[in-house]
Write a protein that binds this DNA or RNA. Structure first.
Lengths: 122, 122
DNA sequence: CAGCAGCATCGATCCGCCTGCATATCAGCA
DNA sequence: TGCTGATATGCAGGCGGATCGATGCTGCTG
């Protein structure tokens, strides 16, 4: 299935501002926000983003989070399916990194037509 | 009664970028995002924001949402406690409107590497 | 080719929350 | 004062999700 966020960036999802959003758009946006709305997952994103190469494997994340390895894998899975993380398996390790401008895209969907010009994809 | 968001805008809450976020900050940010991460509440915000005077009462919101009046009141309560809505009671009606830049604040917390000078680099 | 280490998946438990119905509260009005 | 309409709150059912232990899978490595 296509990473939730991809369905938002590609075929425009209604931003929160402007005309009332449709039920389907609300569901999609809520789905991605739900992936963000968890302390453990926010810390995961933060940890990965601030890691040496901007990437981290599961074994590096369990300790700082204080969660079991299955639980961490579970959260990483949710973030990945939401389109916020990408996974690359090198040998025995699975490295996760942020999808370039995924979070910025969400932020743009929330903020009204401010004076920013970050709407273009890459 | 800190309306959650007030604790984010006023004192500093760690944005998602930069150094790894603390557990307490993650909890606060997740709390506000949780209020956003619901289809019904997203539609409520959208409906209120696009209403004639930028405000709406409960009776105007139940129909377009297709939810019962108690449920709508429940969602409005959550959004208000999160600091996203403000409530004003005029006569028998309760009018809700968006807190000016609440959502923009959340967006800024998600995407600091912007040109914004939200706070010290590090 | 065993044995081991890193991850993902499964099954189960526990908790939080979305929803509606019933009811309480409160302001305006006859 | 008593009634009506607009909201808020209590209560309860049901579903989704966060977590962990156990297990399965797969590349290294000795």
């Amino acid at each position: 299935m296509g990473t939730a966020l991809a369905e938002m960036t590609m075929p425009q999802i209604s931003p929160l501002a402007g005309e009332p959003i449709e039920r389907a758009d609300a569901e999609r946006l809520a789905g991605v926000l739900k992936a963000l709305a968890d302390p453990a997952r926010l810390r995961l994103l933060s940890l990965i983003q601030s890691a040496p190469e901007g990437e981290a494997c599961v074994c590096d994340l369990t300790a700082p989070l204080g969660l079991s390895q299955p639980t961490v894998s579970h959260h990483l899975r949710i973030l990945t399916e939401a389109g916020l993380l990408e996974r690359e398996k090198r040998g025995v390790w699975a490295y996760y990194r942020l999808v370039p401008s995924a979070i910025a895209t969400i932020a743009d969907l929330l903020t009204p037509p401010r004076k920013r010009a970050t709407k273009k994809a890459r």
